[in-house]
């Protein structure tokens, strides 16, 4: 690793001040960032650790909305259970040690195209709360590892409206436990929403054709004959674009079945 300064603020205000410095970068659970630093793929001069800030941690369920602090680890979301599909997703990220460190804010800020949380945020119609503003999930994910966050902007919380029905199914890459294809389906006040992760070169996306079909009939059979084009899907040694496109259909059906 290159040498850098590590700041460990205990308040959000101090963290934002520290992030104002040149080439400063936030560090949340570090489960992606620390290996990246070891490979010298990133070289910030200052890292600002967010995990010592109590106001960024914790989970509140109020009036059907689950608010999760940005620095809340996956294990805490897995244990919470008030949004069962989300807890199920969090409990299957990586391995137990990763879940004790990795955070929801870190995952959403990184926006890995194969990460699980982006699918939950997009399918739930979540709101990403930062130190400056609130961003609807529909406007937040802007591409591969790209988000609407500005330089130095921190995710302070994520607000999830708890839907009537929801489920997440991932076809996992067994070594990394990232999603080869993962689909999060919800049915609630926002209608039916289907978000797909792991598949597209553009990162997480909504499969609107499936949403329309499921709106009139929320059953796996409603998806018969629907498919996504292989064009723009990820192709790597684990699967071709055609294979991933096929999986999107299969996994969406399984998610609908699991949602019940």
């Amino acid at each position: 690793m290159y040498a850098f300064e590590l700041e460990r603020p205990t308040t959000l205000a101090d963290a934002i001040k520290a992030l104002g410095g040149e080439e400063a970068q936030p560090l949340s659970g570090g489960q992606t960032l620390i290996p990246t630093l070891k490979q010298r793929l990133a070289m910030p001069s200052t890292l600002v650790s967010l995990t010592g800030i109590d106001e960024l941690k914790g989970i509140k369920n109020e009036g059907g909305t689950l608010t999760i602090g940005g620095a809340t680890c996956h294990a805490d979301v897995a244990k919470d259970g008030s949004y069962p599909a989300l807890s199920d997703l969090a409990g299957h990220i990586g391995d137990p040690h990763v879940r004790n460190r990795g955070t929801i804010g870190g995952s959403l800020a990184n926006n890995d195209p194969s990460a699980c949380y982006p699918a939950a945020a997009l399918a739930s119609g979540a709101t990403i709360v930062t130190n400056n503003r609130e961003i609807a999930a529909d406007n937040y994910f802007t591409g591969l590892f790209e988000t609407a966050l500005d330089e130095g902007e921190i995710i302070t919380a994520v607000k999830f409206p708890i839907p009537e029905k929801a489920a997440y199914v991932k076809f996992e890459q067994p070594a990394s436990r990232f999603a080869l294809v993962g689909v999060f389906v919800t049915k609630g006040a926002n209608g039916v929403r289907v978000a797909v992760t792991g598949a597209s070169e553009g990162g997480v996306f909504r499969w609107t054709e499936a949403e329309e079909a499921l709106s009139s009939n929320f059953a796996p059979s409603a998806l018969e004959g629907l498919s996504v084009p292989a064009d723009g899907m990820i192709g790597d040694l684990h699967g071709t674009p055609e294979y991933r496109a096929h999986l999107v259909g299969v996994i969406t059906k399984r998610a609908v079945m699991k949602a019940g």
């Binding site: 590590l6 460990r8 570090g30 620390i34 650790s49 010592g52 137990p96 040690h97 004790n100 460190r101």
Partner: peptide
Amino acid sequence: DTAQCGACTVHVNGASVKSCNMFAMEAD
């Protein structure tokens, strides 16, 4: 040393973590 093998697993405040994937300052 890439946070994959888990040989470095320890408990920090009761939670298991990979100690090669956390900075010493974070365990102050």
